[in-house]
Design a protein around this nucleic acid. Structure first.
Length: 950
DNA sequence: ACATGAACTTA
DNA sequence: GTAAGTTCATGTT
């Protein structure tokens, strides 16, 4: 069990300040009038670290006398820092006293800051083979991180996060933690009074680091900059270098790391108790006693962990039932060895049933386990990893369950080769065609395993997908499902790794017993959910949709996501520069026109300028929150009244373009693959469509000339490849024509007519070649309106027609296409009778509001009743095409890959020699994915980027 | 630090 | 009028 030794170095002042301000609203004052907030806050953190981590070595580091060197360099250094609050200065002697009583070494060195002391010690400890954890919230320390040196940051709301090299690379967007110095030097730090470069903030600093690598790199290449920025940086090179020096933590402080001195040994309990009593700390005393009592207990438990004898629970500390104590493989069905949940466990899950979860940590038990595993016909599994991004995540463990209430957890070693060896032993299971694999969101697990070169074969059952088909309007996360269908509350991941968001620990840091309880429970629950959903799929008549569409598609999506797409970052960088310039110009024009400077991006401030200062309109429209509405349609209506309006609209358009696409996309290129990997969500859209996020590649601009340029950045993987975009022409109108059996429209499609022009010709009763642009455009609007469930009101809003003209147009439209009108009322009637509507493949959408007495609510449900079968059927069709194409590409061993899906379009990276074959393959598969009474038509385009391929 | 609303992007 | 996702400002832990 002897891991590498771990040294914890605590940045005292940082934690004291943090503790002090945590209580600032409600300071702790004892009966003697002492403000003990700082002491309390600090001690809480310290005990917390000890309790969580059980360090073998620990020291607390203080500043003393400021940094003489730094003041010499820059006299303003830390000058504008506020005077230390009295509550802190008075706390220091007490803290010293407590630390002494606890036998914790205190490190101070006159003339050096704690950063420098910690930095120096970490380097010495590293040489002696220690892993060092720097306990501090201060981001500056990130520069010290190495393979063996970590930041251990307390986070708001409790808990800690560990920053190793990958975390630092991610947070600061640097390649090497040392670049954090350049980053801080460029952007400056007001609390340390590091000046930084003028005009450079976080974003620009990150950009520079990526572009030039360092401060020196930037200063040597200012010729690549433009405009004001160039001038400012060239003029301030000295300041930049000085800032970098100020930000650098020293590594040569005259202190010595002596392992023996730093060993964490037993505190003088009586003395500490006495001090705490004097300060009137009651909870803290308890906490302290528990922390150190706990320590003893832990070592006892560990010493018995590997015995096979089930041990009677003698202490409330042994909370994780079952795990670790196993009389395993002779235990099938034997209640005697089943560990009942005890009080400490039951408190989290009220209706917990007894369970039998075990982890596997010996060669023999592993051998037995794999033997048993391979005898099963159906197994639920769940991977636990270091993160939520499957491309970078590493396996921490895999849980398995094939019988309700029971399961096993196989932890994975951190070392890569060892992990690979272990997964190889599981390969026969994962690649077995005859063992069914069950899971919740299998796409994730499949992607993780793919990174270990393991393919998941055999029949699949994904409980998330199953539930999506059973009830698409609900949410499908496991916790909700367990509560709804099993009346069971699973252990939340938050109790393990801390609050959601950025504050999470890695699963790797969680105690093995807790990992087991959590992971196996997930597999167990998922297995039980499967039993439940299996029957419901049959009842909802969606078994086929599940087996033939959604489940096969999951693997297709996994492949597409792993593949990613190549992005021309440099192109976007230069685009960003142009946009920045244009935005700045618009900005100054707007300020001039408004007569003052304000935040144009703030609808609130903008509203005041437009409607109170410039009084552009008498009765300004308000939003539902009571603010002035400055939405696009309101503003374009005013564009003729004041030239500021057009500038504002342009400003908004360009800002959106820059922030959401031009600047965001390059930062989402995956470091390890050099490509952008979107995540397709298969279970969010109520109609059956996919959605895409991180980044969303389904809303890349195309309508405006400027926006469309972004598509030039999406490029083939190399010169041997080209992009192919294949899109269905008017698929939704074809679907509605086919479903309604409207002959007039079907005939137009059969004849290959321009459907909007054809509609205009019929509605306005003129020959098709005499249709004007405006007529075609109005016809187009109505055609789309039908798909969305028209109203005259909506239509008049979308066109230049007034309400009566709009009504008239709709009436004529229905007269032209009578069966469309029938189809619409049939859908609504069907929904009223059955409570749902469905697509060509039987995908259902339930409409609970269809019989609502509230006309607005009911109207919305009626529009859903019309739209869902159309949008959903189109989604069904392209899904079929994707599965078939994916199969064909695999069977034919093509180098060509399918990369993207954008609702009615598929994008491929085509290996040039395969181009002709692929073109016909794709067209055939898409057009014949599903047989309708209307031909499906697919347009193909190729190009050296996504814009050209259109 | 986190959630919400407004605005803007797509099919 | 349908279906989505991201960013920014803003107000609240």
């Amino acid at each position: 069990m002897s891991e590498q030794k771990r040294l914890f170095l605590v940045d005292a002042y940082a934690l004291i300040f943090r503790g002090y301000y945590a209580f600032i609203k409600n300071p702790r004052i004892n009966s003697k009038g002492q403000d003990t907030s700082a002491i309390m806050g600090f001690m809480n953190s310290l005990l917390d670290v000890i309790k969580r981590e059980r360090p073998d070595h620990l020291a607390v580091c203080f500043d003393k006398g400021g940094s003489a060197d730094r003041v010499e360099m820059y006299e303003a250094y830390k000058a504008n820092r506020d005077e230390t609050p009295e509550g802190i200065t008075t706390a220091i002697p007490h803290i010293f006293e407590i630390l002494k009583a606890m036998h914790i070494p205190i490190m101070v060195k006159e003339g050096y800051e704690a950063d420098d002391v910690i930095g120096t010690l970490s380097r010495q400890a590293e040489k002696e083979g220690y892993k060092t954890y720097m306990v501090t919230p201060d981001k500056d320390f990130a520069q010290l991180v190495t393979e063996n040196v970590f930041m251990y940051r307390p986070v708001f709301g409790g808990g800690y996060e560990t920053w190793g090299i990958p975390e630092v690379q991610k947070k600061f967007e640097v390649k090497d933690p040392l670049q954090v110095i350049d980053f801080l030097g460029m952007m400056g730090d007001s609390s340390d009074n590091i000046p930084g470069l003028p005009g450079v903030g976080e974003k620009t600093a990150k950009k520079f680091i990526k572009q030039f690598g360092s401060m020196e790199g930037l200063l040597a290449n200012t010729d690549q900059l433009k405009g004001k920025m160039k001038e400012k940086i060239e003029a301030n090179g000295e300041l930049g270098l000085l800032s970098k020096q100020l930000a650098t933590i020293m590594l040569d402080v005259p202190v010595t790391f002596d392992a023996k001195d730093f060993e964490l040994d037993h505190p003088d309990v009586e003395r500490v108790k006495q001090i705490f009593q004097d300060l009137e700390f009651r909870r803290l005393t308890e906490n302290f006693l528990k922390t150190f009592a706990n320590n003893e207990e832990t070592s006892t438990v560990e010493s018995i962990t590997h015995t096979t004898e089930a041990k009677t629970t003698s202490s409330k500390l042994k909370a994780s039932a079952g795990a670790g104590q196993f009389s395993l493989f002779d235990s099938e069905g034997s209640n005697a060895s089943k560990t009942e949940t005890d009080s400490a466990f039951t408190r989290k899950t009220a209706e917990t049933t007894s369970h039998f979860y075990q982890y596997i940590d010996t060669v023999t038990s592993k051998k037995l386990f794999i033997e048993k595993l391979l005898q099963q016909t159906s197994v639920c599994f769940d991977t636990e990893t270091t993160g939520i991004n499957p491309i970078t995540a590493e396996l921490v463990g895999i849980a398995f369950s094939w019988e309700a209430g029971k399961g096993f957890y196989l932890p994975f070693p951190e070392e890569k080769n060892e992990a690979q060896k272990l997964i190889e032993e599981l390969r026969p299971f994962f690649e077995s065609e005859s063992i069914e694999k069950i899971g919740q969101n299998l796409k994730y697990d499949i992607k993780v395993l793919a990174k270990y070169n393991v393919e998941v074969k055999g029949k699949l059952f994904d409980t998330m997908l199953a539930h999506y088909l059973i009830n698409p309007d609900m949410r499908h996360n496991m916790d909700v499902l367990a509560e709804t269908y099993l009346n069971y509350t699973p252990i939340s991941i938050e109790t393990l790794i801390g609050k959601k968001g950025k504050n999470q620990l890695s699963m790797r840091e969680v105690d093995l017993k807790e990992q087991t309880e959590y992971a196996v429970e997930d597999a167990d629950i998922t297995l039980q959910l499967k039993e439940h959903f299996q029957n419901e799929l049959g009842e909802a008549n969606t078994q086929k949709l599940f087996d033939e569409i959604e489940v096969p598609l999951l693997k297709v999506l996994a492949d597409m996501e792993l593949e990613g797409i190549n992005l021309d970052k440099d192109f976007l960088y230069s685009l960003s520069g142009q946009l920045e310039k244009d935005i700045a110009e618009l900005e100054s024009k707007i300020y001039k026109e408004a007569g003052e400077e304000f935040n144009i991006a703030s609808p609130k401030q903008l509203g005041v300028i437009l409607f109170e200062k410039l009084k552009l309109v008498d009765k300004p429209k308000k939003t539902k929150t009571g603010q002035y509405s400055t939405s696009e349609d309101v503003l374009s209506y005013l564009a003729k009244d004041h030239k500021i309006i057009q500038n504002i609209l342009d400003f908004r358009g360009l800002s959106k373009l820059k922030s959401t696409y031009v600047d965001a996309l390059p930062s989402q290129v995956e470091e390890t693959t050099g490509r952008v990997h979107t995540d397709y969500m298969q279970t969010v859209a109520a109609t059956g469509r996919l959605s895409s996020n991180n980044p969303n590649l389904q809303n890349i601009p195309i309508r405006t000339e400027r926006g469309r340029q972004v598509r030039k950045a999406f490029i083939p993987r190399s010169n041997d490849y080209t992009l192919l975009a294949a899109d269905y022409s008017q698929i939704e109108l074809r679907v509605i024509a086919a479903l309604s059996k409207e002959e007039t429209m079907i005939e137009a499609f059969n004849n290959g007519e321009d459907i909007h022009a054809s509609t205009a010709s019929k509605v306005f009763n003129i020959p098709i070649n005499e249709v004007t642009r405006e007529q075609r455009s109005n016809a187009k609007t109505v055609n789309f309106g039908i798909i969305y469930g028209v109203s005259a009101f909506g239509l008049s809003n979308q066109t230049n027609l007034n309400r009566t003209e709009a009504k008239e147009l709709i009436d004529t439209y229905y007269a032209t296409y009578p069966k469309l009108r029938n189809f619409i009322s049939e859908q609504v009637d069907f929904a009223r009778d059955n409570g749902y509507v469905q697509t060509v493949l039987g995908r259902r959408r339930y409409l609970k509001d269809i019989n609502s007495r509230n006309a607005v609510v009911r109207g919305a449900a009626e529009r859903n009743a019309v739209n869902a079968p159309i949008q959903g059927s189109a989604a069904d069709i392209i899904k079929i095409a994707m599965i078939n194409i994916h199969n064909k590409l695999n069977e034919g061993d093509f180098k060509t890959k399918m990369l993207l899906q954008v609702h009615d379009e598929l994008v491929f990276d085509v290996y040039k020699p395969e181009l002709e074959t692929i073109k016909s393959l794709v067209k055939t598969e898409m057009e014949n994915a599903y047989k309708l009474d209307v031909p499906l038509d697919v347009d193909l385009d190729i190009g050296d980027n996504w814009l050209e391929a259109h």
